[in-house]
C-alpha cells in the first residue's frame, strides 16, 4: 500500500531526516511505499494532525507543544529544566521513560492516535540583540514565543515581554525591531537564518525541543502483525539514527552559524548563571498543574522519577 507521512519541518530538518529514514526502512522491508509531505505542503501543524485523525494520513509528526490544545498534558515538555541537557542522560531518558512509553499512549489513543515514539530535536536557545547573562538582561526585551500559555509564562518568569508572532513574520520583525529576541532549537536558528538578524545566541539549558511520531489508530490496529513489526522496527531504527543525528546537528548548526557570521556571540551559560532562570521556572510547573490537574501531576511526577532513574 501507499502510506502517507506528513511532518512539521522541511525535508532537510530533523523531522524530515527521521521521516526519510523511516521511509527507507519500511520500503526495504516490505512492499509498502511511503509518500512524504514536508512542512506546509498539506497545511499547518494542526491541519496535518486532524488529517491523521481523519485517516487521510497514516503517519504524522507533531511537537507536543502544539498538541497542547488537544492533549493539555503534552505541554509538560514546556516545563523548563525538566529534560536533562547532558546528551547521554537525554538519550536514555527518551529510551526508557515510563511517562513517554506508558502514560502518554492512552492519552493519544483517546484522540484516535497511536503514539509510536517521541524524540528530541535539539537544545532550545535564544537569539537576542544584546548579551543575556541573567533575567535582568531580558527586561523590556520583546521576545517572540509560540502562542502557548506555558511558554508565555516561562518568558514572563525569565523577565522578558513575551510577544506572539506567526513564524513567517519573525525574521522581518527582528530586522525592523518590533521584537528583540526569539527562541528555537539550534538547527532551526540556522535554517531559519535567525542569526542574520540577531547578534547574540544564548543557551540557558531550559529545554530540548521534542517531537511525537503518531499513526492513525484505526489504521495501525488494522495492520497485520507482520506489518506492525515492520513499522515498529523502522521506528526503532529511525529513533536510534535521529538521537545521534540531533546531537551532532546541535554542534554542526553552531559551526555553520559561526562560519556564516563570524562576529556572532554565542554564550552557553554556566550553572551559576542558569540558577536564577531555574528558580523562576518553579511557577511554570505550578501553572502546568493548574491547567492539567491530577493527570498532569501524575505525568510530571513520573517524568521526574524517570529522570532520577537515568541519573
Amino acid at each position: 500500500d501507499t502510506w502517507r507521512y506528513a511532518f512539521e519541518e522541511a525535508m532537510d530538518e530533523v523531522q524530515g531526516k527521521f521521516a526519510q529514514k523511516f521511509k527507507e526502512e519500511v520500503e526495504a522491508n516490505s512492499d509498502h511505499t511511503i509518500q512524504l509531505f514536508p512542512f506546509g505542503t498539506l497545511g499547518e501543524s494542526a491541519d496535518i494532525m486532524e488529517q491523521a485523525q481523519a485517516g487521510i494520513l497514516q503517519f504524522v509528526d507533531q511537537s507536543p507543544g502544539f498538541t497542547g490544545a488537544l492533549i493539555p498534558e503534552a505541554q509538560v515538555f514546556f516545563v523548563p529544566y525538566l529534560l536533562p541537557q547532558d546528551q547521554e542522560k537525554l538519550q536514555s531518558f527518551f529510551r526508557e521513560s515510563k511517562a513517554i512509553n506508558e502514560l502518554f499512549p492512552p492519552l493519544y489513543a483517546d484522540q484516535g492516535l497511536e503514539l509510536l515514539t517521541m524524540f528530541p530535536e535539539g537544545e532550545v536557545c535564544m537569539t537576542t540583540q544584546e548579551p543575556v547573562h541573567s533575567p535582568a538582561d531580558l527586561d523590556e526585551v520583546k521576545f517572540r514565543v509560540m502562542t502557548n500559555p506555558l511558554l508565555v509564562k516561562s518568558y514572563e518568569a525569565f523577565g522578558a515581554t513575551p510577544t506572539p508572532l506567526p513564524t513567517g513574520e519573525i525574521y522581518g520583525a527582528l530586522q525592523t525591531g518590533i521584537i528583540q529576541g526569539q527562541e528555537n532549537p539550534r538547527f532551526y536558528l540556522e535554517s531559519m537564518k535567525m542569526y542574520e538578524v540577531t547578534d547574540v545566541i544564548t543557551c540557558i539549558g531550559h529545554n530540548n525541543f521534542t517531537t511525537a511520531v503518531m499513526a492513525n489508530k484505526d489504521f495501525y490496529d488494522g495492520l497485520a502483525d507482520g506489518d506492525k513489526e515492520v513499522v515498529q522496527n523502522a521506528i526503532d531504527v529511525a529513533f536510534d539514527y535521529i538521537l545521534d543525528y540531533q546531537a551532532e546537528l546541535d554542534e554542526a548548526s553552531f559551526d555553520k552559524i559561526k562560519e556564516a557570521k563570524p562576529e556572532i556571540e554565542i554564550n552557553i551559560l554556566s550553572d551559576e548563571e542558569r540558577q536564577p532562570f531555574k528558580d523562576a521556572a518553579g511557577q511554570v510547573e505550578e501553572a502546568f498543574i493548574e491547567m492539567t490537574g491530577d493527570t498532569g501531576q501524575k505525568i510530571l511526577d513520573q517524568m521526574k522519577a524517570d529522570l532520577e532513574a537515568t541519573n
Binding site: 523590556e140 520583546k142 502562542t147 508565555v152 515581554t161 513575551p162 510577544t163 506572539p164 506567526p166 518590533i178
Partner: peptide, 12 residues
C-alpha cells in the same frame, strides 16, 4: 506592546 510592554495574546 509599545506603550504598556505587554502584548495582547488573544489578539491574533
Amino acid at each position: 506592546r509599545f506603550v504598556f510592554q505587554s502584548s495582547i495574546f488573544f489578539s491574533e
